[in-house]
Design a protein around this nucleic acid. Structure first.
Length: 260
DNA sequence: TCTGCTTTTCCTGGTT
DNA sequence: GAACCAGGAAAAGCAG
């Protein structure tokens, strides 16, 4: 349906533009094209004013975060290492590649991206078009995953990059070598046992994620342990009798190599 | 407003 | 003795 969308579709008359020219520079102000768009919903993210093909890696990340927040997409389904790319690379991905990278979420991320390319940011205002599609996604995702996952779909609807749980943040860091920088290390990959190597760096990253300048490793580790009381109980983390060493439990998902 | 979940904060005590 | 780490308890923040 949307496969025919091309750069020239978005840029009528195939105008030649500067590589990093903003959407506003190309087409006028956002208000001219998107008069009812609520900027509050996307904060100050500049990705909203740039054509997707000119997004930086950071813009792509912001867009992913926005989609997760806005439509309550399950960030656990998304392999973020696959999206460590710029906008041009993102736009060149096929629907199959989106699905490979983010499962059921990928189908909708692809759907959203193509609509942004066609309709611009005004796509987000068309609740008649977007909300049912996303609702349908949520229903299907819950049905497909079932069991524990099904529960999570309803009880942890706030899952997102920004509001992701601590254990998910740790898991994603372990799965992203480019971001990890030796902060965390696998002790036993198959068993899900990992070790905190650079405790302060980990706390700093978590603090940035939570926009909390006062975060320290003491607090983060307390959160992991306190959380542990909850996580251990629910099977997300298991107790390891060694300092700075933790283990994913049977109900923690997304960390196994063969289940990414 | 209430409740539950998750995280943060402060404090104390044990280990290295 | 200092630094680091772990656990208890209470409270905050958030969403349903």
């Amino acid at each position: 349906m949307l496969d025919s969308v091309t750069h020239s579709t978005f840029l009528p008359n195939t105008m030649i533009c500067e590589p990093l020219m903003s959407w506003t520079e190309l087409f006028g102000t956002i208000e001219d094209y998107y008069p009812t768009f609520d900027h509050q919903t996307v904060g100050d993210s500049c990705w909203t004013s740039i054509h997707p093909e000119y997004w930086s890696k950071h813009n792509v990340c912001e867009w992913l975060q926005f989609c997760c927040d806005q439509y309550k997409l399950d960030a656990n389904c998304i392999s973020f290492s696959h999206f460590n790319i710029n906008g041009l690379q993102l736009c060149s991905m096929t629907q199959e590649e989106f699905t490979d990278a983010a499962g059921i979420c990928g189908e909708y991320l692809y759907f959203i991206l193509q609509n942004i390319r066609i309709h611009g940011i005004s796509f987000f205002n068309d609740t008649e078009e977007t909300k049912p599609a996303i609702k349908d996604y949520n229903d299907k995702a819950c049905l497909r995953t079932g069991g524990t996952k099904n529960q999570e779909c309803h009880s942890h609807g706030r899952t997102s990059l920004q509001s992701s749980h601590l254990w998910e943040f740790v898991r994603d860091l372990l799965l992203s070598p480019e971001e990890n920088c030796g902060i965390l290390d696998w002790e036993d990959r198959e068993q899900g046992i990992f070790r905190v190597v650079k405790s302060e760096a980990l706390a700093k990253m978590w603090g940035q994620r939570k926009r909390n300048d006062r975060m320290t490793y003491e607090k983060l580790s307390r959160a992991l342990r306190c959380v542990s009381r909850y996580y251990y109980k629910t099977g997300i983390l298991e107790r390891i009798d060694r300092r700075l060493v933790y283990k994913f439990g049977k109900n923690a998902h997304g960390w196994q190599e063969n289940k990414l």
